[in-house]
Amino acid sequence: MKNILITFDSTNYAIQCETVLKEKGIKGQIMPTPREITKSCGISIRVDYEELEKIKDLIDDGKIKVKMLYSFGEERIFEPIL
C-alpha cells in the first residue's frame, strides 16, 4: 500500500495539519518521523497516497504548512515528492 508521509518544520504545524485533515475528512495517522529522515523527535502524518491531490491543494491554499512530502510503501523507502 502506497502512503504519503508529511513532515513539518514545527510540531505546531503538525497539530494544525491534523486538525485540518480531520475537518476535511482525510484520514491521517500521526507517527514519529522515521529515523531514515531525521534524528530528531519529529512528528509526521501518514495519509493514503490517493489523497495526494487534496494535500497539494491544502498546501497551495495555505491551509497546512509542510516541510516535505514523501511517498513510501511496504518496504519503507522514502522518496521525496516534488
Binding site: T11, A14, I15, E18, Q29, I30, M31, P32, I43
Partner: peptide, 13 residues
C-alpha cells in the same frame, strides 16, 4: 495538544 499528539505517536511506534 502536544501530549495528545505524542501519545498517538507513541502508540503508533
Amino acid at each position: 495538544k502536544l501530549g495528545a499528539m505524542l501519545m498517538k505517536s507513541f502508540i503508533y511506534s
